[in-house]
Structures are given as C-alpha cells and as structure tokens.
Design a binder for these strands. Structure first.
Lengths: 189, 189
DNA sequence: GTCTATACACGGATAGAC
DNA sequence: GTCTATCCGTGTATAGAC
C-alpha cells in the first residue's frame, strides 16, 4: 500500500520551507523561530505553511532531519573509508569537519541535540559510536573498555567543541579534535 | 547608598516562586514552563508573579541562578579541599556528585547550559576549570597542554554523562566520572 | 506594599470559504 | 489545493482594590 505520491508543488514548497527554517534557526536560534517568520521568509501565510506541515514543530523537525541526514551520511562515508581500528577517530574528525563545512547547519544541530526530544532517546546518539569503539577494541585485543561511557564522553566533547567554535570562529576545532582523538585512543588501550 | 531592604513577604514569595519554577522545569522541561503554570502552582495570578519579577524570563533566570549558585558553592568547597594537582579531578567528581544529590536541579542546569544565553559567554563555563588545569600542570611540571580545549572537552563530557543519567537513573555516573578523570589525568601528562 | 481584574499583542492551530 | 477568518493560549501592561 504505497502512500500517495506528493505533487511537484508539494515537494518544492516543503523543500523551500525546510530551507528557510534552517536559515532562520541559524540566524535567530531554535527558540525564536516563529511560524510567522518562516511563513514570511517563504512569502506565504502561516496557514499555508500549516497546510504543508501539520504543526510548526513538524516543520522544524523536518528541517532538523534534513540537516541530520546530511551529517550522518557524510560521517558514515568517512568512517567506512578507514580501517576498523581507526574508525572512532575518523568519526570524531568527520563530525567536526562536516560542521566546519556546513556552518549554517551547526546551530540547528547543537541546539536540538541538547534538548530532550521525547521520541529520541539518548541511546540513538551514542550507540553508533559505541559500536565503532567496540569493534575497534576487539580488533586491538584490548578489553575492559566501557564503550557506552566512552561514546557518551566523546559525543559530549564534540558538542562542546562545536559550540565553542560557533561562538568564536577563530577557535581551532580541528586541533581540538586531535586532542580528543588522542584521549580517545589512549582510553581504548 | 544601599538598595531598599526587601520585605519579609517579598523574600518569601520570591523564594516560593523560585521553588515552584525549579520544580516545573524538572517536571516539564525548560521550554514548557509557562507563566500561568508557575502562577498556578504558587496559588496566585500571573500578574502577581510579574509584581515580584519584571518578566517571565526573570523568574526563570532567578531560579537558574539559585540552582547554579548551589552547584558552584559546592564544587568550590570540594576543589579547595584537595591538593593543586588533584583539583581538576576533584572538579569533575564534585560536579557529578552534586547533580546526583540534587536530581531536581539537574534538568534546569543542563537545559540552560545547552542554550545560548546572550549574556553568558561560553568562556564563563570553561574558564574556571581551565584555570585549575593550568595550575595543576604547572605543579606537575608538564607543559604544552591546551587548557582551554581540555576544559571544553571535559565540560562537554560532564554534560553528556549527566544527561544520560537523567534519562537512565540506573546509569552509573560516578563510574563514568572515574573514566573521565582518568582520561583527563592522562591528557595533563 | 501586595495583589486582582482586565485588556492587548502575538504565536500556533483550526474551519471553512474560494 | 490555497488562503482568510477566527479562536485559544501565553507574555505583558495598566488600573485600581485592599
């Protein structure tokens, strides 16, 4: 039972709305994005926006999804390009690199990741990295490593580095990433 | 010229409002606290709340301040109780310990720290720990350590550990703290 | 000095006109 | 399929009761 194919206008409008929403969040922050602002920047009325999305949150969620998918895709490619032992470090570098390359996406991602969305458990955030860590330590022959904690620590550290760079564009997030990978490497034995 | 002494009722009401606000945030999250809810839980009207505080944000800010002051005080005592070399580790332990002891304060703190308040630069967050790290490495005779980055990484890691515990009260944040202090110790040379 | 009543502006959501 | 009119909730300002 395939759902109805969306029309051309439908897809165009949704893409446009996602685009202006990402922009609005980058400019004014997650909390201050109003439906009116999104509608205004898209050149339509509030109700017209709510025709294409059920609620305002759905618009923002879609924009977040878009940005997140780009990140996940990018990181996945980078991670798979290297040897199993080096994947956790590649994860860190790819994450920071992607956000440096897509500065407009940064604020959206960090402000959302910080918040607690009912439907996204924190596990979804650390599980992928924890799996990479498990595989890496297995390949190294080390053991006794708590991959969950290591992934949580590393993820939090990445957030903090990115946040710092968002406020100070002179901050060298690549160098910070190297410090982090070094610490991670040592912790994995 | 000293500012006017606040009356008994004034101090009592403010304390009560701060209390119900902390509770409301712990229950429903930072974003969903409305002035109406605060007023309701305190048994007065919205306007009465705004008599004691200029705006809704001022109420929430005061509640945040209250919770933050308790944390800072607690951590400062713990840090000063130990030797200079061990202070960064004591900072981590005290931070996690305090949040374990005041679970009702946790959500308030992390949701606020995540957000970007215009008046609070991120430096205020990492500077104290960076100073402890600087003093510690000086005492150890190590050098070449980027204390800013190390503080940012550690602070982000603490946030992530606390967030995880907020969602899974079975999670052993003390053990995670030990992993973190070990990593920090290694990074300081 | 402390509070209630009321009124307004704005944001989000819905019903129904076109 | 798109937008107008409208409604409800939230934050804020003012007047005035006690």
């Amino acid at each position: 039972m395939a759902t109805k194919e969306p029309s051309f206008i439908e897809r165009t409008r949704r893409a446009q709305l996602i685009d202006v929403t990402i922009d609005a969040v980058a400019r004014h922050g997650y909390a201050k994005v109003s439906l009116a602002r999104i509608a205004d920047n898209a050149g339509i009325t509030k109700a017209a926006v709510l025709y294409h999305f059920r609620t305002k949150d759905a618009v923002v969620e879609a924009a977040y999804r878009f940005v997140l998918d780009a990140l996940v895709e990018d990181v996945a490619v980078a991670v798979e390009a290297v040897d199993v032992q080096e994947r956790p470090q590649a994860y860190v570098r790819a994450m920071l690199g992607h956000l440096r390359a897509h500065r407009g996406h940064t604020r959206m991602l960090i402000e959302r990741l910080g918040n607690i969305a009912p439907e996204h458990t924190p596990e979804q955030r650390w599980r992928p990295l924890a799996d990479l860590i498990d595989a890496s330590v297995r390949a190294r022959g080390t053991d006794g490593v708590d991959s969950r904690t290591l992934a949580i620590i590393t993820g939090g550290a990445i957030d903090a580095i990115v946040t710092e760079r968002l406020h100070d564009s002179e901050y060298d997030s690549a160098a910070a990433g190297e410090s982090l990978t070094t610490m991670l490497d040592a912790a994995m034995g």
